[in-house]
């Protein structure tokens, strides 16, 4: 049996539909503008040869208001802001993404810059099948 790795869709179906309507742009309102509203924390997943990267757009928070948790290859970002003075809005957000299986979770590093949180998770060394000689 051949195992084929699942490739996550890289395109946003709403955006494709928007492109379809591209010729009529200006006549119809942009479809993706409606569609994108509910995703409070946009998340991206990338990889290169050494690492898996997760990026979250979280503008306007302080570093200590953001919490990261990695549990069994599910990466969760939580934001909690308490209202300090009257008129402040209390914020509680959370977003989870599933990581591929072959990651070394204990070596995760994260960086928050200009409202973008980038998490770097190194890939674990591939388990190579061990050849057993028959005597």
């Amino acid at each position: 049996m051949k195992l084929i790795r699942y490739t996550y869709p890289t395109m946003n179906p709403a955006r494709d539909f928007g492109n379809l309507l591209g010729d009529f742009e200006g006549f119809f309102p942009r479809f993706e503008d409606f569609w994108r509203e509910p995703a409070a924390v946009p998340a991206d997943l990338y990889e290169d040869d050494a690492n898996v990267y997760a990026r979250f757009e979280l503008p306007g928070y302080k570093k200590d208001e953001i919490k990261l948790e990695l549990d069994d290859s599910v990466l969760t970002v939580g934001v909690e802001r308490k209202a300090e003075k009257d008129g402040d809005e209390e914020v509680r957000l959370s977003r989870s993404v599933s990581l591929p299986d072959n990651v070394a979770a204990d070596k995760t590093a994260a960086k928050y810059e200009d409202g973008v949180l980038t998490v770097t998770i190194p890939k674990a060394a591939e388990k190579t099948a061990k050849l057993i000689a028959i005597e």
Binding site: T10, N12, P42, A43, D44, L45, Y46, E47, D48, E57
Partner: peptide, 9 residues
């Protein structure tokens, strides 16, 4: 060098 699995941004 980064390849995307999934993108929302």
């Amino acid at each position: 060098s980064w390849r995307a699995f999934s993108r929302e941004s």
